[in-house]
């Protein structure tokens, strides 16, 4: 169930260049089930910024949860300035996350995260490893100072890192590493920038692929129609999906990305 709660900040610390890990205490963590779901965060009490900020859940803990965000605009800068003990107005959990049950014990799941698309992969890796799925994580960043969660993901399986400038891990894109794993993946789960998702969809690296989309959102609950996309079977027509409430996770081939 969706709840609105003032969640207390347990920690809010930089873990890479302009990347912050925020741990919030709240009963709504009990409502969180799937990785890939997100929370809608009100970063300021007043009118500016007015709207909430959608941030994906990185880890569901007992009585708390972790989100990771990039300090980029006015809203996320305000969030980064908040200190321990302060309460933050959170709405969530929202959306439909990654269907972990689609990966069977003994199968191999490849988790692909690009930039701030990495966080949901942590909770997913945790859930998959717990049920006996082999987890391989591939995470991509612009450069070495942006890399995070390599060690954390390594708790659950092999981790490959790619950086665009080659300053850490392998030079290139996550798809370059995926190309090298040919045939190993029974299922691929991915979250990251749209061009990355498109490349993964086109690459058809596994029999089943699930992608988490990003779009500018208004309400986050499916009421405002800001974040709609066309469906693949009717790309010019009237049928649509809302990224916030039908997604943000879709099976590859379901919607036009």
């Amino acid at each position: 169930m969706i709840r609105q709660e003032n969640c207390k900040i347990v920690s809010n610390r930089p873990i890479a260049d302009n990347i912050f890990e925020l741990v919030l205490e709240g009963e709504l963590s009990a409502e969180m089930a799937q990785s890939g779901q997100f929370v809608h965060v009100k970063v300021a009490d007043g009118f500016d910024p007015l709207l909430r900020r959608p941030i994906s859940i990185a880890s569901i803990n007992d009585g708390s949860f972790t989100i990771i965000y990039r300090r980029q605009g006015k809203g996320t800068s305000l969030l980064a300035d908040k200190s321990i003990g302060i309460s933050v107005d959170v709405l969530g959990p929202l959306g439909n996350g990654f269907p972990a049950d689609e990966a069977k014990p003994g199968q191999t799941a490849v988790l692909v995260g690009g930039g701030v698309g990495v966080p949901p992969m942590y909770e997913l890796a945790k859930q998959l490893a717990r049920k006996g799925v082999n987890v391989i994580s591939i995470i991509g960043f612009q450069s070495s100072n942006a890399v995070f969660y390599e060690k954390e993901l390594a708790e659950f399986g092999e981790v490959y890192v790619a950086t665009v400038d080659g300053s850490y891990g392998r030079k290139g894109f996550v798809t370059d590493i995926l190309d090298g794993l040919e045939g190993q993946a029974d299922i691929v789960f991915a979250c990251g920038p749209t061009p990355m998702l498109r490349a993964i969809e086109n690459g058809a690296y596994a029999p089943k692929t699930y992608l988490s989309l990003e779009e500018r959102m208004g309400c986050g609950i499916g009421a405002c129609f800001a974040c709609v996309c066309h469906t693949k079977d009717d790309p010019q027509g009237f049928s649509y999906k809302k990224v916030c409430s039908d997604g943000p996770v879709f099976q590859a081939g379901e919607v036009v990305i």
Binding site: M217, F225, A226, V228
Partner: peptide, 22 residues
């Protein structure tokens, strides 16, 4: 179907929308 995205943009104390009567 309405307009292409982006359909919303934030403004100080408000927002712009161009959903297009979807």
């Amino acid at each position: 179907f309405g307009n292409p995205t982006p359909r919303v943009a934030e403004t100080p104390g408000g927002m712009l929308n161009a959903i297009g009567l979807q």
